[in-house]
């Protein structure tokens, strides 16, 4: 589904990703772990198409097309979803309104009829249960005045409604207490299926106690230096990142 080959990326003229390779198939859950500054968030942002991330070398192929050619919204239409590390607040823009516009933009792209208000609301109600979203958050402005946990839950809720093919979760666990983490993880687990790939970008092993990955990769200094199964995460937790770095060096 997703194939990243020799990806080099510059931010503010500084090279962050230095030849990253990654292959993700439908139905898989991949965890990308690494210390601060290793390039985890850069990877997430490049995949979603954020401005200011310059790809100097390499390629990203998603469902047989060149992902890097696409505008951010075109990627979203094609099923790429990024759960932001820091979801932005948008004053005056209603949360549900944004979501309805997003759902219908995706449907329009797929040639499906747009949902009317009733259909949309029943979809929303159903998905809200997944992440135990409070109903009043729906009618607030996007992320405005949300607690950290509520923002992250809102991201997963949006993911549930938009039903992406490839979901990238950027540090979705950071800043969450254990109860909130469990809720978010449950939400993500319920969205696992054979057609959907999930990439978890995280600093901590903690999240992986609740979302079991199929593959774990260690990102360090812009490259994946070690890949393995879920056991690799535990090993990292125990021995720290330096151990892998030394082993790779």
């Amino acid at each position: 589904m997703l194939k990243i080959e020799n990806l080099h990326t510059k931010v503010d003229n500084k090279t962050i990703l230095k030849g990253l390779n990654l292959s993700v198939e439908a139905g898989e859950v991949h965890a990308i772990m690494g210390p601060n500054g290793s390039g985890k968030s850069t990877l997430a942002n490049v995949l979603a198409g954020r401005d200011g991330y310059e790809v100097s070398k390499g390629s990203v192929t998603y469902q047989d097309q060149d992902l890097l050619e696409l505008a951010p919204e075109e990627r979203a239409w094609a099923g790429v979803f990024l759960a932001f590390q820091y979801p932005v607040e948008i004053p005056g823009v209603n949360n549900v309104y944004l979501l309805k516009a997003a759902v219908n933009a995706v449907r329009k792209f797929r040639g499906e009829p747009e949902l009317d208000a009733v259909e949309f609301l029943s979809l929303v109600k159903e998905k809200m249960k997944l992440v135990k979203m409070k109903e009043d958050l729906l009618n607030r402005s996007v992320n405005e005045g949300f607690s950290g946990g509520e923002k992250k839950r809102n991201e997963i809720f949006q993911m549930a409604v938009l039903e992406p093919k490839l979901a990238i979760l950027d540090e979705t666990d950071s800043g969450l207490d254990i109860d909130a983490l469990k809720i978010v993880a449950e939400g993500v687990n319920s969205l696992r299926n054979k057609d959907r790939a999930i990439v978890l970008v995280t600093h901590y092993q903690r999240l992986l106690d609740y979302i079991k990955p199929d593959h774990v990769h260690v990102l360090s200094d812009g490259k994946i230096i070690k890949s393995g199964g879920p056991e690799l995460a535990l090993e990292l937790e125990e021995k720290g990142y330096d151990w892998v770095k030394e082993a790779a060096a």
């Binding site: 979603a48 198409g49 505008a71 951010p72 919204e73 990627r75 979203a76 239409w77 979803f81 990024l82 932001f84 979801p87 932005v88 948008i90 004053p91 005056g92 823009v93 309104y97 944004l98 979501l99 516009a101 997003a102 933009a105 995706v106 792209f109 402005s141 996007v142 949006q158 938009l162």
Partner: peptide, 19 residues
């Protein structure tokens, strides 16, 4: 953020300005 959710730039601008 809006564009990542599949909303075209022009609509996103509209949405934010209206907000």
């Amino acid at each position: 953020y809006c564009m990542q959710r599949g909303i075209a730039e022009e609509d996103a601008v509209n949405m934010i300005v209206n907000g």
